[in-house]
Design a protein around this nucleic acid. Structure first.
Lengths: 102, 102
DNA sequence: ATAATTGGTTTGTATTAAAAACTGGTTTTT
DNA sequence: AAAAACCAGTTTTTAATACAAACCAATTAT
């Protein structure tokens, strides 16, 4: 008779959310209704390529919405968190707390 | 005049601690005084190789202490958290909270 | 004797975070 | 009017690493 694994909390941690840069992005997006590429770039102090890849991951996971428009002649990209994103962010923290001290 | 980056919390996140499996190990080690390889193996449901590499990382970072002994003729390895480990675990969570909702 | 188990370590692979290089334009300088 | 510099990103490359598979050495069971 084999016994079951009961304490595998680490498996409940969503890797898309878990990455620190993406956590920071999601945190920002939960309090601002909308932010743009350059705001994130300067606020987080990332390279453009790095930011772009993190953004893609969040978009592909359905956690953020991307809006592309022209401001005059210049392209402008901005982001919002989706309902799913907000939900998963909450859920992530709920799971993480099981790994916190106390 | 260039402005400074103020919101780079993600850089404060210690990657050695941040990995979910290692978080789980550290969590366990903060409440038990000492645990052994097999306890972690079955509790966490990992492969031996995977556990061994996580253990190494924690040891190299000075976060855990490894004790190797013979129990009769059988080798036995057990682990404790170090003062540094405990401290870094606390610090990690302090930093992480800056990325949490609310 | 041989097979299975224990207690690990070493090696290989696939993913991915991060930076560099590139693209398609626009604005500024000369 | 060209060229240089800049803007707003995307695509490509690289280096690190989580994870599993394979291995190893000794012990216990058949």
């Amino acid at each position: 008779m084999s016994s079951k694994q009961v304490n595998q909390i680490h498996n409940s941690i969503n890797r898309v959310v878990h990455e620190p840069v993406r956590l920071a992005i999601l945190k920002i997006l939960t309090s601002a209704k909308e932010v743009d590429f350059n705001f994130l770039l300067t606020t987080l102090g990332l390279t453009k390529g790095n930011l772009a890849t993190h953004i893609s991951k969040l978009e592909m996971a359905g956690f953020i919405e991307v809006k592309k428009e022209f401001r005059g002649k210049i392209p402008h990209t901005s982001y919002r968190i989706t309902r799913t994103g907000r939900h998963q962010f909450q859920k992530y923290w709920k799971n993480m707390k099981a790994l916190a001290p106390e």
